[in-house]
Design a protein around this nucleic acid. Structure first.
Lengths: 346, 346
DNA sequence: ACTGGCACTCTATATATGGGAGTGCCAAGG
DNA sequence: CCTTGGCACTCCCATATATAGAGTGCCAGT
């Protein structure tokens, strides 16, 4: 941190990490000497390694085995040492193909997630976009299923449909329902879902008598449906890929990891963090803030619709993952999904 | 198989299996002597155990360790030796509560699955009901999203909503869409989804000119939505519970197991098999027909809506699971879910 | 500043070693 | 004839021990 590395040390650190990533075993001075391309003897390299260890960039698991990168080492690596491969063009177009053949936002997201996990052989995560401030309200419908059960259907301009069944206390006539629907459709058409939600909320607070009773209930139901439409989801796939990775050998560790996937809340929070920044984001080990992700890294990128960031996607794998392979995949996927969702919308 | 067991052998087999299930370790003659309640010496019991081994009901992992049940042993056990506990009443009512607070079929199913896995601490599986022949068509709507994009919404009488976006080749006027909707709603109201699907299929085959062109496309779109409505789903939860079970220690084995959960097709097939029979069904180890389920058992029960079997639920765990605890849970859940879905429907 | 050499450390693997649990069989007793 | 205690035998498992190998740190020489 204090002293910036001289270029020889950089090269050695880079080679060491690459070597460790591909081999999985601690790297010793001899292998480093042959691999780094510098004409140095193992002894010299040992001196440099000692320095790197002092700086906290690498460490040795035991008194005498090779060195492995520390978290700080990885950080430096991905920040300034890493050379990313650009992606195979045919793979890109294949990805694009698979991605855009979902007519529907849900399909696009699901495809993206599954592709991502397949390409990286890691676990993939895609957050369902916040549509609130982007997607506009188109129309709402109240369908009477039986005497007291009413189905509310919310349709957004982009074709997303949200629906929910309510058990109302009393009977509603068809005409009441039609009237309610007309009211909403006239009042709110064209506004964004978020706006409508807020307006409805205000409406309810006013506890107004200016509204008929029947309207009140309708507003309440609509409010709930809108509230759910915010329902931020998360699509996870390829979790089981992580079981093939020897680093995670411990079933105990795996279990905790899978719990994270199960709850989703934590993951969502993590993805939210990287919503702010553009481009690819990397959380290494503890940086994510979750103990279960101790030996994992998370590579994320956010995607946008109509030039606004609306969601994030990423992959989760062992800290010892091939960043140079994974980063471009995540990057490209984010861009493609942006395209697929934007094009879809008009 | 040939010779039915005498009662002493039965008791010993039963105790052995119970002992093995609770302890997880091979059971020897001494422990069996103290646990079985019979006044017999270990030596005598050894003789009986030898017989049981000859019959293929138990085996010893090594020349000299205790015995463990074979698949055939488990089979006999669950078929005729098992005494199931009846369930704690408070648990039942709690279950019922949690189950019925989902207004919506999807919620009920999801709740059932999660409850099932929580109660058993195993992986749970619930198949989404075949609604085709039960659920009636209520109405269809065509919403124009943009010039050539049309949203088709299918509403069933029970409140299920199915929707899909189509990119049509040409523009449709609002009046055309209204006309199409009216046609469907008048023609098919009240019929079951399955019926409508078949009728539409026939309609399309006729390639009739009696229909206007616009109708043809509408029929086609409707057909596709109906086809998707058949979309048999599967809700899985608690997979990660299996990682806590020491029997499955092997990550390799777990991985294959998780692959089964991932593909779902195989699971669905398995659940289908037990749709035919009423009551609780048990597949032990290989009986399920899947190699990945080698050391697992599947306990299933089907549930019904309006006295017709429409789906199946079950749990998957190690063959060495506590059947006497699991069976009643699966049984009750199936009954409760039947109730919850039937009551919901009118 | 770099290098070879050397003693040292620590791991991983293979190889004994002994205890323990359980069996099968046999001969004796009810 | 069924049951039982006794006994030799088998096999697993945990522990200890030896050994090879990889890698280090340090020092002295270039």
């Amino acid at each position: 941190m204090a002293t910036p590395l001289n270029s020889r040390a950089e090269i050695l650190l880079k080679t060491l990490i690459e070597q460790y990533i591909s081999g999985g075993a601690p790297v010793g001075s001899r292998t480093l000497a042959t691999q780094a391309g510098l004409e140095l003897s193992p002894a010299t390299i040992r001196n440099v390694m000692a320095e790197l260890e002092d700086m906290g960039l690498i460490r040795s698991p035991h008194t005498s085995s090779g060195r492995v990168p520390t978290q700080a080492g990885y950080r430096l690596f991905v920040d300034s040492l890493l050379s990313v491969e650009s992606m195979d063009l045919s793979t890109v177009s294949q990805l694009q193909g698979e991605l855009t053949d979902g007519v529907d936002q849900q399909h696009v997201i699901a495809n993206a997630s599954s592709m991502l996990s397949q390409l990286t052989q890691l676990a993939a995560v895609v957050s369902v976009p916040r549509r609130e401030e982007i997607s506009a309200f188109r129309q709402i419908e109240f369908v009477r299923l039986s005497a007291k059960r009413i189905l509310v259907i919310l349709i957004a301009r982009d074709g997303q449909v949200q629906n929910r069944v309510f058990d109302t206390g009393r009977k509603y006539s068809d005409s009441e329902l039609v009237e309610a629907a007309n009211f909403f459709n006239a009042e709110f058409a064209g506004r964004t879902l978020g706006e409508v939600k807020r307006l409805l909320l205000k409406e309810m607070e006013r506890d107004s008598e200016s509204m008929q009773k029947s309207m009140r209930v309708a507003v309440e139901m609509a409010q709930q449906v809108f509230a759910e439409s915010q329902d931020e989801g998360l699509v996870v796939s390829g979790e089981s890929n992580l079981m093939d990775i020897p680093d995670m050998g411990d079933v105990k560790t795996l279990r905790r990891l899978f719990d994270v996937f199960g709850t989703k809340r934590d993951l969502l929070h993590l993805l939210d963090q990287s919503m702010r920044c553009e481009g690819v984001n990397i959380f290494i080990g503890r940086e994510s803030g979750y103990e279960a992700l101790e030996d994992c890294s998370v590579v994320t990128a956010s995607y946008e619709v109509d030039n606004r960031i609306v969601g994030t996607l990423g992959v989760i794998g062992p800290t010892r993952m091939s960043y140079e392979r994974v980063i471009p995949i995540v990057d490209i996927t984010a861009k493609l999904i942006s395209g697929a969702l934007s094009g879809d919308n008009e």
